[in-house]
Design a protein around this nucleic acid. Structure first.
Lengths: 191, 191
DNA sequence: GTCTATAAATTGATAGAC
DNA sequence: GTCTATCAATTTATAGAC
């Protein structure tokens, strides 16, 4: 809390807006709600952003960019799919926590607008990439035989995504605890 | 599709309304949207239900009643917590699929109204009961030592709940496939 | 059980002053 | 960068006829 009245630019406004969208839902938040929380008027908000939907788009892109960046990271897995998979799982959890409000926003999108539909398509693209890793790890014989790669990917990443529903930074559970618990589940699927 | 015009009572209207709420979100659905999909006017809807929020309440109660009923079911687990836990996991997945639209509605509630807050409180109560089972199973030495019961419960039931995001009856994946895949993950945590 | 008509409030967004 | 004032459209809900 700084002394004196808050003054906004697009970035600082995005922080507040994403927070409110995450708490009440995008559709459940009116521009008036947003203005009240931000401590400015609706008009002032429109000075920084084109529309309510534009705020959503910026927030969603931030989450998606961060998630996709994981795939461009080099890792020391030595080419084994199951190790690459563990790396992607670990980093996805870390990104999810680091960008918690934005990833939460992303995971709650329903596809009601073109902006939301575009975000959902990028999400599906991410899932497909992870699914390929599961399939490869099963083919390598590193995950239990008979395990359905697509189904398992949905369950494991559904589990990871569910973290946004309860995890709060500064709680007793550290990110490393979280990563360890998630990897414990994944390792339970190994041969 | 029956011949002739659809005529509604509260139950048949609830089916349509829950479907639309689930697709677009409760806040993202207007009574006009609902009327259009149902093929009747807004006024007609108010003949069957008191308010938009009342529809939500009925749907949420249906999901919560079905989930809590699992705990009242007798099972042949012989008193061992880990077996009781497997039973609850299996039945929760089955109930989730059987009452898919209502459970989906429940899992998307944000707490914006008193109705939603009451539903969230009942959900937390369900989670506490499951968490106790995890704790007991760890204490019995039937789940990996060092495993955090509360954290693991959140991850496992987050995984289960995530099923509403993609599972559709009549798909290739049967309920039994789904239950088997979820139990495979749980069994990976056993000693 | 459904309709037309309408009310009262809220919504996303703009004009223009400071 | 923020404000007051305002708009047009939409929203939840009601009155009363058939």
């Amino acid at each position: 809390m700084t002394t004196g009245r808050q003054r906004y630019d697009q970035d600082s406004l995005l922080v507040v807006a994403t927070q409110v969208f995450t708490e009440r839902g995008y559709d459940g938040t009116s521009m008036e709600d947003l203005a009240r929380v931000a401590g400015i008027t609706k008009s002032s908000i429109y000075h920084h952003v084109e529309s309510k939907e534009a705020i959503l788009r910026i927030g969603l892109d931030r989450a998606l960019d961060a998630l996709f960046a994981v795939f461009d990271e080099p890792d020391a897995s030595g080419g084994r799919a199951v190790e690459r998979l563990r790396y992607v799982v670990r980093r996805t959890v870390e990104v999810l926590v680091a960008e918690l409000p934005y990833v939460t926003l992303l995971l709650r999108v329903r596809g009601n607008t073109a902006t939301e539909q575009a975000a959902l398509e990028r999400r599906r693209s991410f899932d497909r990439a992870v699914r390929a890793l599961f399939a490869e790890a099963v083919a390598d014989g590193d995950l239990r035989p008979g395990l359905d790669p697509a189904l398992t990917e949905r369950l494991v990443f559904g589990m990871i995504n569910s973290v946004v529903e309860w995890y709060r930074p500064r709680s007793e559970t550290t990110v490393d605890d979280l990563v360890a618990a998630v990897l414990a589940v994944v390792d339970g699927l190994r041969t």
